[in-house]
Design a protein around this nucleic acid. Structure first.
Lengths: 224, 224
DNA sequence: AGAGAATTCCATCATTTGTTGGAAACCTAT
DNA sequence: ATAGGTTTCCAACAAATGATGGAATTCTCT
C-alpha cells in the first residue's frame, strides 16, 4: 500500500488526477504536503530541503510524507508538474483576457496580471529559476516546459505568425521580459533594499520598468 | 595549525591577501580548491555540494580541504568574495574602456564585454543568481555586493548624476539588463535549445537582444 | 644531511538524511 | 460494535555528510 503514489509518475502533460485533487483540496493531507513542499523547495532548493524539514513544516511524521508522495524526488517532481500546470492556466487566462485588444493594451494587461501573480507566488518564481539553472545533483530534467508558453506569447504578441516556427530573436525578446519578471519577483528580498523603496513602490517600479522596456521591443518593426 | 584560514574572515571589502594569492596562483593547492569550489558551487548550489565532491574534484583528501579553507561555509564565502572582487574589477575595466565615448558606444561595448565574460564564466552567473534568491539553509548574507556596481553603471550611463542618490527607476533599468545577461548565461543549457540555435548563434542573439532592449531605455528622456 | 615547519593523508566520530517495516489510531459501512 | 481498509506515527536502519586528531610525508632553509 506504500505504492499508490506511483499513479502520477511521468504525467506532466495532461494533469494527473491525484495532483489535481491535491491542489484543489488544500485541506487534504496530500494538498498540505504539496503546498509546504512548494514553499520550502522554492526557498531552499531541492538539496536544501530535508524530508524532516518538510514533515515538521506540515506538522506530521516523515512516514506520512512518504505514504502520500513517495520519495523526495517524486514530491519535487509533483511540485514542478503542479507549478507548470498553474502557469499554463495563468497564461491561458491572460490570453483570454486580452484577446482582440490592441497590442499595447495586451502588453499592459499581460505584464500587470503576470507580475501580480508572481509577486503573490514568489516561490513559483524561485522554483522556475532553479529549474533553469538545473543540474541538481540527483534531479534529472524536471523542468517547467516553459518553451511552449514563450512561443505562444510570441505569437500572441505578433512577433511570429506560426507557433511552430518562431524566430530565435522573437523568443529571445519574450524570454527577456519573462525572465526579468521572474527575477524581480524571486529576488524581491534582495533587490528591494537596493532600490531603496518600500514594497508597494517596488512592485510598481518593476511593472513600470518592464512595460517601459517591453513596449519598443514589440512595437518596433522586426529589424535586425 | 588548523586555524590560519581564519585570516580572511569578514573581509569582503578590501581584497584579503590570501584570497588574492589563491586566485593569482591557480597552481597552488589553495587556488585549485577555490577554483573547483567555484565550479561545483555554481553548478549544484551550496547544499548540493559535499566536501567529498570537492575533494574528489581536486583529487585530494577531505582534510586537505579543511586545512586550507576551513569549514564548507567559509570556503563558500571565499568563493563569493573572490567572485565579487572579480566582477568589480571587470566593471572597472569596462568603465575604463568606454570612458569618454558616446553613450551608444558605451552601451555597445559594455554589453559585449560583459556578455563575453559571463559566457566564459557561467558558474559566476549561477553563483550570483543563487545569491540573489538567497536563503540557503545555513548560509547568512554572503551576497555579492552588486548594489554599488549597479549604481555605478547607472551613473556612468547618465541615468543619475550622483552615485549616492540614484533614482529607483534608473536602478531598476540597469538591473533589468544586468539580470538578463546573468540569466541568459546562467541558463544557457536550458535556453539554448528553446531558441533552436547553436552556441555561437545563441550568444550573438543574446547580445543583440540585450542591446536592442537596452538602447531605448537609456537614450529616451527620463519620463514617467 | 637534518631540524623544524608546512602540507597531505588515514582513520574515525557524531549527526544528519533518505527511507522503510510494522504497530497503533482512525474511518466507514454494515 | 466490529471488520476492513485507510491514514498516521514510532522506531529503526544504512548510507552519507561535516568535521577533526594525529601520523606520515614533503618542503625549506641552513
Amino acid at each position: 500500500m506504500l505504492e499508490f503514489y506511483r499513479w502520477d509518475r511521468g504525467q506532466d502533460r495532461i494533469m494527473p488526477s491525484p495532483l489535481e485533487k491535491a491542489r484543489q483540496e488544500p485541506e487534504s493531507m496530500k494538498g498540505r504536503i504539496l503546498a509546504a513542499a512548494r514553499r520550502l523547495f522554492g526557498e531552499y532548493g531541492f538539496s536544501g530541503v530535508t524530508t524532516r524539514m518538510l514533515a515538521r513544516e506540515v506538522g506530521i511524521d516523515i512516514s506520512t510524507l512518504y505514504y502520500h508522495w513517495g520519495e523526495k524526488q517524486d514530491l519535487y517532481d509533483a511540485v514542478m508538474a503542479d507549478l507548470s500546470c498553474e502557469i499554463r492556466a495563468k497564461l491561458r487566462e491572460i490570453e483570454g483576457m486580452v484577446r482582440g485588444a490592441t497590442l499595447s493594451h495586451r502588453l499592459e494587461v499581460a505584464i500587470d496580471v503576470m507580475c501580480d501573480w508572481l509577486f503573490d507566488h514568489p516561490e513559483a518564481a524561485r522554483l522556475m529559476l532553479s529549474s533553469y539553472m538545473g543540474k541538481s545533483r540527483s534531479a534529472p530534467d524536471a523542468h517547467v516546459p516553459i518553451k511552449e508558453h514563450i512561443a505562444n506569447i510570441a505569437v500572441a504578441m505578433g512577433l511570429a505568425l506560426d507557433r511552430t516556427r518562431v524566430p530565435a530573436r522573437a523568443n529571445a525578446r519574450v524570454l527577456t521580459v519573462w525572465n526579468s519578471a521572474v527575477n524581480f519577483t524571486a529576488g524581491e528580498d534582495f533587490f528591494l533594499p537596493m532600490l531603496g523603496v518600500d514594497r508597494d513602490e517596488y512592485r510598481s517600479v518593476v511593472k513600470e520598468t518592464l512595460k517601459f522596456i517591453l513596449i519598443p521591443a514589440f512595437t518596433l518593426p522586426p529589424a535586425a
